[in-house]
Design a protein around this nucleic acid. Structure first.
Lengths: 275, 275
DNA sequence: CGGACTGTTGATCAAGGTCAACCTCTGTGG
DNA sequence: CCACAGAGGTTGACCTTGATCAACAGTCCG
């Protein structure tokens, strides 16, 4: 088949991520290419979507980082999530009058706007993609719940460890092998607003993690020195992200499953157990 | 049509909620009835779904309250959300290997388990329901983001006000008119674990809200004395929940829109503006 | 060279946590 | 009918985590 040209595919990161789980056929590849018909650029701090906008369109990130946030009248803000290449931001917006949160570029980035009819058309061409999107949405919801758990019930150390671990896991999915050093283009202010702490305390806590030999940073380059201890701090109860359940591969409209030999092993994932 | 017998419909609360937004036809009513084929009972503290379960089934709550929670090894827990009659809990579970959170009954309750094929079959019979479920999922995601904002960036007073406001809005949707006094079958311990505070501090803060003439409670009966001040505290930027966007009513598979004369006015909702 | 932005460190402060006592209500069993 | 136990709520005293304010250092960029 013509499936061996991922390097030139317009939404490589999404593809790359999906390939950890399923093996897209030519139909799916062609359908995915459709999604990026309306491509755009954004520079740091540009607003892709503003709170209150009618914005009836999904966003598909191709390169660069963004974030979703909500702001209070007095300036306090909460960062809901960081958005990485390959992320598809809420198709839920199709069905909603006004956005409840803003999406802002962190780095220079490329993305596509996906209007509702285009998404529906794409799904008609490649129904198997529906399961993928559904799966991604479920993973996303689980991620949000983890985030809530961290912010609501963990202390500063744990919260930050949790965030770093989450980002590392997500970045791992964008590469063939877990990178040795991660590039996290986020300031400590962003970390603070994501985990609900003050900037100063984030700085202190990061220094402490570094002193304890768990992390190492310079600039935006981060290294995880002890995956074990970081993971323990992050308190992750279940493996995340999860694979598609096997039985879905057999559904009439599903994609072909990857054969075990070619399936990449995901980084922090323990196959079964919890602790 | 035969749409005037909601009193005997097996999932009245869901219906009631949907009727604030759309006008289900006979097909939709029949299809909804299908969903509750596998009905169950639960008593307080019963576990409908346990963290780590494979549980490939959605839950449709018919009566009573439940909650979704995640627990840490040392006993700390975060309540993700309270689940009310008419709530459909994550169809996302179809596509996921293991549940990331538990669902526990708060009161005695009735619910139905909805396996994947039943849901798909139902949607085949009444495609218009798909939009409804999608809309509910989008509302749900927005609610979770609000919750995260509250826990991450608000102080005790605001967090609790936020929670009470959210619950009141959701309960309003289950009745024809906003009730004068709400029945909230939740202990202060549950409130604490939902908003990320200690029980003691919840007690103090509630007493303060009562002293300030914003709330009144005895037992599980709550009255909102000043909707204005409660709403201001809760810091709600956009109207919630939102109506379906008008254009979706015109989609080929959509339900009939309610005529303006019969559409109920929703409680805390300002039609357009933010503050 | 000067300014903006980001990160680090110290000093002080306050919101909320913890511990403990006590109270009210409800249901239970004698 | 009362005694008792247990759960949930209230209040006080004290302590801890993290917020706030401020000064300063490093880096990038005009």
């Amino acid at each position: 088949m013509s499936s061996e040209t991922p390097a030139e595919h317009p939404c490589k990161p999404l593809l790359h991520r999906l390939q950890h789980f399923v093996d897209p056929g030519p139909d799916e590849l062609a359908a995915l290419a459709l999604l990026t018909r309306d491509r755009r650029q954004a520079t740091p701090n540009a607003c892709l979507l503003r709170e209150g906008d009618p914005g009836r369109t999904a966003l598909l990130l191709c390169s660069g980082w963004a974030l979703r946030q909500r702001t209070l009248a007095d300036g306090r803000r909460q960062i809901m999530e960081f958005l990485l290449p390959g992320d598809m931001c809420d198709p839920g917006s199709f069905v909603t009058r006004r956005a409840d949160s803003s999406v802002v570029a962190i780095t220079a980035m490329q993305y596509a706007r996906v209007p509702p009819d285009l998404l529906l058309e794409t799904l008609r061409h490649a129904p198997g993609l529906g399961v993928c999107l559904w799966w991604m949405a479920a993973q996303h919801a689980a991620m949000m719940r983890s985030h809530l758990l961290a912010v609501g019930r963990m202390n500063a150390r744990e919260r930050i460890a949790h965030l770093v671990w989450e980002l590392a896991c997500r970045l791992d999915l964008l590469h063939d092998r877990p990178p040795r050093v991660y590039r996290l283009p986020i300031s400590q202010e962003l970390i603070a607003d994501a985990v609900g702490l003050s900037v100063v305390h984030v700085s202190r806590t990061l220094c402490a993690l570094e002193r304890d030999g768990i992390l190492h940073r310079h600039g935006h380059h981060w290294q995880i020195l002890s995956r074990r201890r970081l993971r323990a701090l992050a308190n992750l109860p279940v493996a995340w992200p999860q694979r598609l359940p096997a039985s879905l591969h057999d559904a009439p409209t599903a994609l072909q499953p990857r054969t075990p030999s070619t399936r990449a092993v995901k980084p922090g994932e323990t196959p079964q157990s919890t602790s």
